[in-house]
Nucleic acid binder design. Structure first.
Length: 595
RNA sequence: GCGCCCAUAGCUCAGCGGAUAGAGCAACUGCCUUCUAAGCAGUGGGUCGGAGGUUCGAUUCCUCCUGGGCGCGCCA
């Protein structure tokens, strides 16, 4: 993995590689193995290259590490290293010069120059005609953070909200609405949901209605104007609701990013025909055959064995057309992939959906690859676990329904508002906020808490949703990080004029620790992107907040011993505020100036 | 049956080859006449589910086992 040269880790890695080449000559298997030290008595970074390499070369690891250290110090024209010391069985402990650290802080948090790759990020993807519920939370939050980080790193991001606006449920709903003759009458979302439930119930008992629903699906797909008009009314109502929720969640998604399943309808037939024509029965690694009236794509590995098997141990196909002629989820996904590659010219596709769809994505990615649609492009399925209730089962309301996202966010903000109010009632903590300020803080803290609680989890595991924990004032929570930021702003307000281009002095241990951590934002992001481990960014920001709090306790800023130290500390405060704001911004959280 | 994910402190979770395994909560002890105490400092708490293997080195990688979650032909 290439690391941008600007980061300390990147510069150390480059230096280490040059030194290794000098010692052992050209070798394809050289790895610098630079990592931040866990314990600061081992320096700032450690190089673990000597341990393994010395053994392969039949040399003593400590001796090898010593000559590596010598070579590195000799090649270090830019004055990066303070010391390089051999320790333990052959670790090389590296301490960075304060001057190099100060340089690394220049422009920290600034976005990269544009010029990266073109990335399509597919996320959120709610269903039309239903309220957004907790099942859409993680995709929305995670996908948005992915977009923000990619953009920060200089990539061109194209958001795609692949909404479900075209399935069989619309036949049901259109048929029911048209039966009732509600054309022209305003329908709100609550009505739609009630109507959908009624329609489902009716379909359970009424064969004729089921038949009319099926006909409506066909009419819709064939572009029947009356059916389309009904469908559009449903869509318009839902889109409005969805964007209200997005606005409150603070997502980047706009109506322009919405490209629903219906968009691909005219392309589905072509996709199936292309595959059928190019991969007739007997083709490898993929063959398209009709079985029981359905069009099936079978995928084979290099040995000609089926890549996927069903519960009976038989080859399992990807179904691209049902026996009744209708298309399915995989068909739409293939059409969308083709559109993103050919029309949007993307060279990196990211899909953010829950992990239950992992098999589907494996199959459909493989089919796209085998069809030659992918080439050198990157396909990533970013999965996540389920949001659970206190009982350890998927979160539902007491009556067993999906928790509506709008309700969940409302409660989070309510609870945050109560916390703000409690502080205002306490004479020792009162800040004298206006009603508008209190609302602003509650909104940022409440929504931020929900998002941060999600992002700070390991993506792959399920997690138990708890307002109490996410809004806790202590620990790795949004309020803690936002509080750190507000404290910095408070100092800056009191300081008045901020110093112009001050010299950073890192004599105090808390000053240097803070500076070193601040300098590691970009290298943390490099790690985050590798596997989309967003919780690493959360951990980084939590660590930053903790270091700032310790700095705050131990290093008076406004009452610093000298004007030079005061200016230096004010500059550290400014850098910390910037990194916190940028970092939280990358996660989609807003900061507040006071709380 | 096959596949994917998970198992780490009493609880909730970090830690995807490196040095004595880390946080927060909960329990206990200090610190507000000094920049926001939504804070800081400290104490106690672990056979990293089990057994093998690879490695100079394994919570981390591989194999098997146990226990949980999820998925596997016309839903998306």
């Amino acid at each position: 993995m290439e690391v941008p040269m600007a980061t300390l880790a990147g510069r150390l890695e480059a230096l280490t590689l040059r030194a290794l080449e000098q010692i052992v000559g050209d070798s394809d298997a050289l790895a610098a193995q630079i990592a931040p030290t866990r314990d600061e008595k081992h320096g700032d970074y450690q190089c673990n290259a000597a341990l393994g390499l010395a053994r392969r070369l039949g040399r003593n690891p400590r001796d090898f590490a010593a000559s590596l250290a010598e070579a590195m110090l000799g090649l270090d024209e830019s004055g990066l290293l303070e010391t390089a010391e051999v320790a333990g069985p052959g670790f090389l402990n590296l301490r960075v010069r304060d001057q190099a650290l100060v340089e690394a802080l220049q422009g920290v948090g600034a976005p990269a120059e544009p010029g990266g790759r073109r990335v399509v990020v597919d996320y959120s993807s709610p269903n039309i005609a239903k309220q957004m519920h907790v099942g859409h939370l993680r995709s929305s939050i995670i996908g948005d953070a992915v977009c923000r980080i990619l953009d920060h790193m200089g990539h061109e991001v194209i958001r795609q909200n692949h909404v479900g606006d075209w399935g069989t449920q619309f036949g049901l709903l259109c048929a029911y609405l048209m039966d009732r003759g509600t054309q022209g009458v305003e329908v709100d979302l609550g009505d739609l949901e009630a109507l959908y439930r009624e329609a489902q119930a009716l379909a359970g008992t009424d064969e004729a209605f089921r038949e009319r629903s099926r006909e409506r699906v066909v009419a819709l797909h064939q572009g029947d104007e009356e059916t389309l008009a009904t469908w559009r009314r449903i869509v318009t109502t839902s889109v409005e609701h969805i964007h209200q929720v997005y606005h409150r969640l603070g997502l980047l998604l706009t109506p322009e990013d919405m490209r629903g399943e219906s968009f691909y309808n005219p392309r589905l037939q072509t996709v199936v025909e292309e595959l059928q024509a190019r991969f007739p029965a007997g083709s490898r690694p993929m063959e398209v055959v009709e079985d029981q009236g359905a069009v099936c794509v079978f995928l084979y590995d290099e040995q000609g064995e089926p890549r996927f098997k069903n519960a009976q141990g038989e080859a399992q196909p990807l179904l691209v057309r049902k026996s009744d002629g209708a298309f399915l989820y995989p068909t739409t996904d293939l059409a969308a992939l083709s559109f993103r590659v050919r029309d949007l010219q993307a060279d990196w596709l990211v899909y953010v959906t829950d992990s239950r769809q992992a098999l589907h994505f494996q199959m459909f990615f493989q089919a796209a690859r085998d069809a030659g649609w992918v080439g050198e492009r990157t396909l990533e399925h970013v999965t996540f676990g389920t949001v659970l209730g206190p009982d350890g089962k998927p979160l539902k309301t007491r009556s067993g329904e999906n928790v509506k996202l709008a309700d969940l966010l409302e409660e989070a903000v309510d609870r945050a508002a109560r916390l703000v109010e409690e502080n205002e009632q306490d004479s020792a903590r009162r800040r004298g906020f206006s009603a508008a300020e209190k609302r602003g803080i509650a909104e940022a803290v409440g929504i931020g808490a929900v998002k941060y609680a999600d992002l700070s989890q390991n993506r792959s595991s399920d997690y138990v949703f708890s307002f109490d924990r996410m809004l806790a004032m202590e620990g790795n929570t949004a309020p803690y990080l936002m509080y750190a930021y507000a404290r910095i702003r408070s100092i800056q307000r009191r300081a008045g004029e901020l110093p112009q281009d001050p010299t950073l002095l890192l004599g105090e241990v808390h000053e240097r620790r803070l500076a070193m951590h601040l300098a590691r934002l970009e290298e943390t992001l490099d790690q985050v992107v590798h596997g989309w481990r967003l919780n690493l960014l959360c951990e980084y920001l939590y660590g930053l907040s903790g270091l700032f709090m310790k700095f705050y306790e131990n290093c008076p800023v406004l009452a610093a011993p000298t004007p030079q130290v005061r200016d230096s500390r004010l500059a550290l405060c400014e850098a910390a505020a910037r990194v916190l704001q940028v970092g939280l911004g990358l996660l989609g959280l807003r900061v507040v100036e006071r709380m």
